[in-house]
Nucleic acid binder design. Structure first.
Length: 422
RNA sequence: CGGGGCGUAGCGCAGAUGGUAGCGCGUCUGGUUUGGGACCAGAAGGCCGCAGGUUCGAAUCCUGUCGCCCCGACCA
């Protein structure tokens, strides 16, 4: 795509009120726009990242055998009354129709998925199974903060699993825990898995996933080596202890919670009378688990973990595009034509290979401004086509995460880039 | 909701003691430039968040209100 075709431009000035790195860079680079406190529009570059993150999550859920569905965001009051969460939990927005019927804006979907599943499940033969969605959630946070890290409207993947017995639930819970770690790692994040409290969702076991970054608002005691961690709120280990899992030392770190999984037990099955008939013809409660990943928050967490003073440094797996192609102008008409023609060919060849390219095709912008924008936007690879590089029949190759650049022959660029983005 | 900060051009800001709004960036026109945010000339762009009040006169003083950011409470 050509930079000149994108209406959402970068800005030379960072937003004045941005405190967190994600708010500052996502806005400055034109990835998101703030509509109001805690509510954002995802602009083309930002949407590209969000979709990639969500696709990674989707693939990991599919690999667990879960089937994707899409549930509504308008919920009937009765569903929330059934679990006693209409009045007693302050986290959802409520609204009503012209005819004074009450609704909740979906803050979570246990109240929707449980009655849904009840319509289909009668027998143990239908169990176990899991289903998930990737949807927009609405939560009436007392205070939205930190850019896309805590919004009142945000994106989330939520999965629900249904089981006949605890062993089966626990096994699936553990498989999901591992799938989560894989998903985060694929997104370029190091995570710790911490035991947590169930909050308003359950009294049973729960784990939260913490992306390690100094910008985190949670304090966790984490193993310096393995994935073990404990939220300081519930911690039984302390700084300097030996990790109960691998024996390495426990250290105090900051983390951003980017996921949470719960053993729901029969809490929702009880509320909605979700039963099944077992092998002996007995009616029993279905056991449930629920598993959430805030995907828009995950994007913010990646920025917090992957940036420098100049801008974002996207992991290849979630970068809005792999290659940021910069053409530098020349006063010589023939050379200029050659530069633009070379770039045009390269973009076409790369796109034909499925490599996403942002071509900064502006001719009236200085090299410095283009470089600054490239650093800000943070694509993994910057490729320059200029008079200088063409004299060597080359492009200039500079990786965002690295410091030095080198020339790569035009004849080899396509192959090298294909190798790079693998 | 308590505490703190801030609302002036698209963005970033300046506008003591009240006198009718300015700078930088960006944008538009023309020209010169082109390897780390170029330069010259010209131009457009403001319900000074909103509403009251004081005053001959309010961006400026007073009251209220709305919004944004930060801390706290709260938070799969």
């Amino acid at each position: 795509m050509k930079y000149s075709n994108c209406f959402a431009k970068t800005s030379k000035m960072a937003p004045a009120d941005a405190d967190s790195a994600n708010a500052k860079f996502l806005v400055q680079a034109g990835f998101v726009d703030q509509t109001m406190a805690g509510v954002y529009t995802w602009l083309p570059f930002g949407l590209s990242v969000l979709r990639k993150v969500e696709q990674i999550v989707r693939e990991e859920m599919n690999a667990l055998g879960a089937l994707e569905i899409f549930m509504p965001s308008l919920h009937p009051k009765e569903f929330w009354e059934a679990t006693n969460r209409w009045d007693n939990v302050g986290f959802h927005f409520k609204t009503h129709s012209q005819t004074d019927k009450d609704y909740a804006l979906g803050a979570s979907h246990e109240e929707v998925v449980t009655p849904l599943v009840k319509k289909f499940i009668e027998s143990y033969k239908s169990l176990p199974f899991a289903t998930y969605q990737i949807n927009t959630k609405f939560r009436d946070e007392l205070r939205a903060k930190s850019g896309v890290l805590r919004g009142r409207e945000f994106r989330m993947k939520d999965m629900y699993s249904f089981h006949t017995n605890q062993e089966d639930l626990s096994a699936f819970y553990q498989k999901t825990l591992e799938a989560y770690v894989r998903a985060y790692n694929r997104c370029g994040l190091n995570v710790k898995v911490a035991e947590a409290s169930g909050g308003v969702f359950t009294k049973n076991m729960s784990h939260e996933f913490q992306a390690l970054t100094d910008a985190g608002e949670d304090t966790i005691l984490a193993c310096s080596k393995c994935e073990f961690g404990q939220n300081v709120e519930v911690a039984t280990v302390k700084d300097g202890d030996a990790c109960p899992k691998c024996g390495s030392s426990i250290v105090t770190v900051k983390g951003i919670e980017i996921g949470n999984i719960f053993d729901l037990g029969t809490k929702y099955s009880d509320a909605f009378d979700l039963n099944f008939t077992d092998e002996n013809g007995e009616r029993k409660k279905v056991l449930m688990g629920c598993y959430g990943i805030g995907t828009s928050r995950l994007v913010g967490a990646i920025v917090e973990a992957c940036h420098d003073e100049k801008g974002m440094i996207w992991p290849k797996s979630v970068a809005p595009f792999q290659v940021h192609l910069v053409t530098l102008n020349s006063k010589d008409d023939a050379v200029r034509e050659n530069i633009m023609g070379t770039a045009d060919d390269l973009v076409r060849d790369l796109e034909a290979q499925g490599v996403e390219v942002l071509w900064d095709d502006r001719e009236d912008v200085s090299p410095g401004a283009k470089f600054a924008d490239a650093d800000l936007i943070g694509a993994p690879l910057r490729v320059i086509v200029s008079e200088k590089s063409l004299k060597e029949e080359s492009v200039e190759w500079k990786e965002r995460a690295g410091t030095e650049s080198r020339l790569v022959k035009l004849a080899d660029v396509l192959e090298e880039i294909k190798e790079f983005v693998k």
